[in-house]
Amino acid sequence: TQSIHIEKSDTAADTYGFSLSSVEEDGIRRLYVNSVKETGLASKKGLKAGDEILEINNRAADALNSSMLKDFLSQPSLGLLVRT
């Protein structure tokens, strides 16, 4: 696993530069990185398409609903625990 911390203040970007997809496997919801913008903040921090997001801001990914995800992604900083 890899811990990634991203700050939007690093650039004038209003997004982190990646998209997520939610997949249900064996009754457990998993979050995967769908795509990463080549010039985006997430790419600079090493996030890659296909990575599994285990935690966002110290909250287990399978416990997050879509409104919580939207809220986290609109925050000025983001902490991710990722399995590559």
Rank of each mutant, 00 (worst) to 15 (best):
T1H: 00
T1L: 14
T1R: 06
Q2P: 00
Q2N: 13
Q2R: 15
S3I: 12
S3D: 11
S3L: 15
S3R: 15
I4G: 03
I4Q: 07
I4W: 01
I4L: 06
I4H: 01
H5C: 08
H5K: 05
H5W: 09
H5Y: 14
I6H: 02
I6P: 04
I6Q: 00
I6A: 02
I6R: 03
E7W: 08
E7C: 14
E7V: 12
E7Q: 10
E7P: 03
E7G: 03
K8H: 05
K8W: 04
K8Q: 05
K8Y: 00
K8I: 07
S9W: 01
S9C: 00
S9E: 08
S9M: 03
D10R: 08
D10Y: 06
D10C: 07
D10F: 04
D10I: 05
D10W: 05
D10V: 05
D10T: 07
T11H: 09
T11V: 08
T11M: 09
T11E: 11
T11K: 11
T11G: 13
T11F: 10
A12D: 14
A12C: 12
A12P: 10
A12Q: 13
A13C: 07
A13G: 14
A13L: 07
A13Y: 10
A13F: 06
A13Q: 11
D14A: 09
D14M: 06
D14N: 06
D14V: 07
D14I: 08
D14T: 10
D14G: 08
T15H: 08
T15Y: 08
T15M: 07
T15V: 07
T15N: 12
T15F: 08
Y16M: 02
Y16G: 00
Y16N: 00
G17E: 04
G17K: 01
G17F: 02
G17V: 01
G17I: 04
F18P: 00
S19G: 12
S19A: 10
S19Y: 04
S19L: 05
S21D: 11
S21V: 10
S21M: 14
S21T: 14
S22M: 11
S22N: 09
S22T: 13
S22E: 14
S22K: 08
S22V: 11
S22I: 12
V23H: 10
V23P: 02
V23M: 08
V23A: 07
E24L: 10
E24W: 13
E24I: 09
E24T: 12
E25L: 07
E25N: 09
D26A: 09
D26W: 04
D26V: 06
G27V: 01
G27D: 07
G27W: 00
G27N: 12
G27C: 03
G27S: 04
I28S: 12
I28F: 11
I28T: 13
I28R: 14
I28H: 14
I28Y: 10
I28L: 09
R29M: 07
R29G: 05
R29S: 09
R29P: 07
R30T: 04
R30P: 00
R30G: 02
R30E: 02
R30V: 03
L31G: 03
L31F: 05
L31C: 06
L31D: 05
Y32I: 07
Y32T: 05
Y32L: 08
Y32P: 03
Y32M: 08
V33K: 02
V33Y: 01
V33Q: 05
V33H: 00
V33F: 06
N34H: 10
N34K: 15
N34P: 02
N34L: 08
N34W: 05
S35A: 12
S35Y: 12
S35M: 06
S35Q: 10
S35L: 05
S35N: 08
S35I: 04
V36W: 04
V36E: 02
V36I: 15
V36L: 03
V36N: 00
V36A: 03
K37S: 14
K37Y: 13
E38V: 09
T39V: 07
T39F: 13
T39N: 14
T39R: 12
T39Q: 13
G40S: 07
G40D: 00
L41M: 05
L41Y: 08
L41E: 09
A42G: 05
A42V: 04
A42L: 04
A42Y: 00
S43A: 15
S43I: 06
S43V: 11
S43H: 11
K44S: 08
K44R: 15
K44T: 10
K44Q: 15
K45N: 03
K45E: 15
G46R: 00
L47K: 03
L47V: 07
L47N: 00
L47G: 01
K48V: 07
K48G: 01
K48D: 04
A49M: 12
A49E: 12
A49I: 13
A49T: 10
A49D: 10
A49H: 07
G50F: 02
G50H: 02
G50L: 01
G50D: 03
G50Y: 04
G50N: 04
D51Q: 11
D51P: 00
D51F: 04
D51T: 06
D51R: 01
D51C: 08
D51M: 15
D51H: 09
E52G: 03
E52Y: 02
E52V: 03
E52L: 03
I53F: 01
I53W: 01
I53S: 02
I53Y: 02
I53L: 05
L54A: 01
L54T: 01
L54K: 04
L54G: 01
L54M: 09
E55K: 12
E55G: 02
E55C: 03
E55P: 00
I56E: 00
I56A: 02
I56W: 01
N57M: 01
N57G: 02
N57Y: 05
N57C: 04
N57A: 00
N57V: 00
N57S: 03
N57Q: 05
N57R: 01
N58V: 05
N58D: 05
N58L: 01
N58E: 09
N58G: 15
N58Q: 11
R59W: 09
R59I: 15
R59G: 06
A60H: 07
A60L: 08
A60V: 08
A60T: 08
A61E: 03
D62E: 11
D62Y: 13
D62C: 11
D62T: 12
D62F: 06
D62N: 13
D62W: 10
A63Q: 12
A63D: 14
A63R: 13
A63G: 13
A63I: 12
A63E: 14
L64W: 02
L64D: 00
L64A: 05
N65K: 08
N65T: 14
N65H: 06
N65G: 09
N65W: 06
S66W: 13
S66P: 14
S66V: 04
S66K: 13
S67W: 10
S67N: 13
S67E: 15
S67A: 14
M68G: 06
L69K: 03
L69M: 12
L69G: 00
L69W: 12
L69C: 12
L69P: 07
L69S: 07
K70L: 10
K70C: 12
K70T: 12
K70M: 08
K70Y: 14
D71C: 11
D71W: 10
F72Q: 11
F72M: 12
F72P: 02
F72C: 09
F72W: 07
F72I: 14
L73A: 07
L73D: 12
L73Y: 10
L73M: 15
L73W: 10
S74K: 15
S74A: 11
Q75N: 11
Q75I: 03
Q75R: 12
Q75K: 15
Q75E: 14
Q75H: 06
Q75L: 09
Q75P: 02
P76S: 11
P76D: 15
S77K: 09
S77W: 03
S77M: 04
S77Y: 06
S77L: 07
S77E: 10
S77D: 07
S77R: 15
S77F: 09
L78T: 04
L78M: 13
L78A: 01
G79A: 13
G79L: 15
L80M: 13
L80V: 04
L80I: 03
L80R: 04
L80K: 06
L80C: 04
L80A: 04
L81Q: 10
L81D: 04
L81P: 04
L81H: 06
L81N: 09
L81V: 11
L81T: 13
L81C: 07
V82S: 07
V82L: 03
V82K: 03
V82A: 06
R83S: 03
R83V: 04
R83K: 11
T84R: 15
